[in-house]
C-alpha cells in the first residue's frame, strides 16, 4: 500500500501516526511533508528508523520549491510527478493521511 503524507513532521503528528500505524510498504512525502526528508531536522531519526519498514520517496518538485533540494536525507528516493503516478500504479491501493 502507498501511504502519502503532506504535513511537516515538526507541526503535525500525521507522519508519526502513519509510521506507527501502517504495516509498511511505500511512503511518499509531498507538500509540507517533504521537510521530513531533509538532513538535520528533528524528525530525521524517526524517518530513518521507519526505513526498516517503508521505502521512502519524496516528491522532488515540492522539495526543490522549498529550497531544500540539496538537503535530501540519505536513503530517500526522489520522484517527480510521473514517479508519483507510478507509485500509485505499482501499489494496489493508496491512502492520503490528511
Amino acid at each position: 500500500m502507498l501511504h502519502i503524507v503532506n504535513k511537516s513532521p515538526l507541526t503535525s503528528n500525521t507522519l508519526d501516526s502513519c509510521l506507527s500505524t501502517a504495516a509498511g510498504g511505500d511512503l511518499l512525502l509531498i507538500e509540507d511533508a517533504v521537510y521530513a526528508a531533509t538532513r538535520g531536522n528533528a524528525a530525521e531519526s524517526r524517518l530513518k528508523a521507519a526505513m526498516e519498514k517503508f521505502r521512502v520517496y519524496v516528491l522532488m518538485p515540492d522539495l526543490a520549491a522549498r529550497g531544500m533540494g540539496e538537503r535530501m536525507s540519505d536513503g530517500v528516493t526522489p520522484v517527480d510527478y510521473a514517479g508519483f503516478v507510478d507509485l500509485t500504479v505499482s501499489n494496489k491501493s493508496c491512502q492520503s493521511w490528511l
Partner: peptide
Amino acid sequence: SRSQMGALMDEQDVVLSF
C-alpha cells in the same frame, strides 16, 4: 491497536481520509 489498524487498512480497496 495501531498494528491491527494498519493490517485492516491494507485490506481496503479505497481509503478516504478526511
